[in-house]
């Protein structure tokens, strides 16, 4: 619309259409954000709050549980997001081949995990990863392990289960975005590359990846936000404890515990939540930077 300027009446109509959403967003998003920023400078228990300046930030640096939660969240992010993105890309490229048989079947199967709720699938995984359960039996039958792994009572394996579970739930979701983007890539580019003798791997790294860069960036940012907010699965696996001995405690779970389990310290939990905001900001910025640099060879 290279439009003539809207007249007064149309201006008003425009505001009327967006007013309900704006009022709700103001009330339930913008106001709470400002409030939580203000709250993060308050100290005290319950509703007895007083201004504490940077006391909460100081407390962060000395709080071993917070540092533990930060480390765990970061571990989940660093390991899980790249594995999932690479798998999703591989599946998307494989499924984009129009000569492949059973494409629809494969696509539906790999996408299916997305329809389950985070709670439903973590319940299923919890029962599959029981010490005498199906997963251990399967691994022992394949002679991958000699004796059963105590998945949920070992700090290392508990993290592994969570990473496996999240990857199971979200890989197909990311794959759909890549499939969509691949459909917009001009097929003649691949055809030309193939005729020029460019091997499959080079076609993948030199054509597919650069073409998909915006979508990869988008999904990476979305996955970063999701992983840094990790809550449902951990809560369900560990009955809210983040155990064994805080080895799966995430920042969101810690905020929840600070607010709703212990004597509530709203100020401090608001500070921890702003740590997530800042982390999301920094990581998204870094991802944008990486994506931009590669575009100029």
């Amino acid at each position: 619309m290279a439009q003539a300027r809207l007249d007064r009446r149309e201006q008003l109509t425009g505001w009327a259409f967006i007013a309900p959403a704006l009022i709700l967003l103001g009330l339930f998003m913008i106001y709470p954000i400002i409030w939580s920023l203000w709250m993060s400078f308050q100290v005290g228990k319950g509703m007895n709050l007083s201004f504490g300046g940077l006391a909460n930030i100081e407390r962060l640096t000395k709080d071993p549980v917070f540092l533990r939660a930060l480390g765990n969240t970061f571990t989940f992010f660093i390991i899980q997001v790249p594995i999932m993105i690479v798998l999703a890309l591989l599946f998307a490229v494989a499924l984009n081949d129009s000569t492949l048989r059973f494409r629809g079947l494969f696509r539906t199967a790999i996408f299916l995990p997305c329809v389950t709720s985070l709670i439903a699938y973590s319940t299923i995984f919890k029962s599959m990863f029981a010490t005498d359960g199906i997963i251990n039996q399967g691994l022992m039958a394949l002679h991958i392990i000699g004796s059963p792994i105590a998945w949920f009572s070992d700090p290392f394996w508990a993290k592994v289960v969570i990473i496996l579970a999240i990857t199971w739930r979200w890989t197909g979701y990311n794959m759909i975005f890549y499939l969509a983007a691949l459909q917009n890539v001009d097929r003649s580019i691949y055809e030309a590359a193939r005729i020029d003798g460019v091997p499959a791997w080079a076609r993948f790294t030199h054509i597919t990846i650069p073409m998909l860069k915006p979508v990869i960036l988008f999904t990476t940012v979305i996955s970063t936000i999701g992983t840094l907010q990790l809550f449902d699965e951990v809560y369900n696996f560990t009955a809210g404890t983040g155990g064994p001995s805080d080895s799966t405690l995430t920042l969101s779970l810690y905020i929840y515990n600070l607010t709703f389990k212990f004597m509530p310290s709203f100020g401090y939990s608001a500070t921890v939540s702003w740590v997530i905001v800042v982390l999301v900001g920094i990581l998204s910025f870094l991802q944008f930077l990486v994506a931009r640099d590669r575009r100029r060879p």
């Binding site: 913008i30 954000i33 709250m39 840094l228 939540s273 997530i276």
Partner: peptide
Amino acid sequence: RERLFALLLLLLSIPFAALMVPLFV
């Protein structure tokens, strides 16, 4: 309204954890 829309897109990256305490109160 275009500025407002850009602001909304920025807010998409705010995690729910940052909102839940004030919302609950």
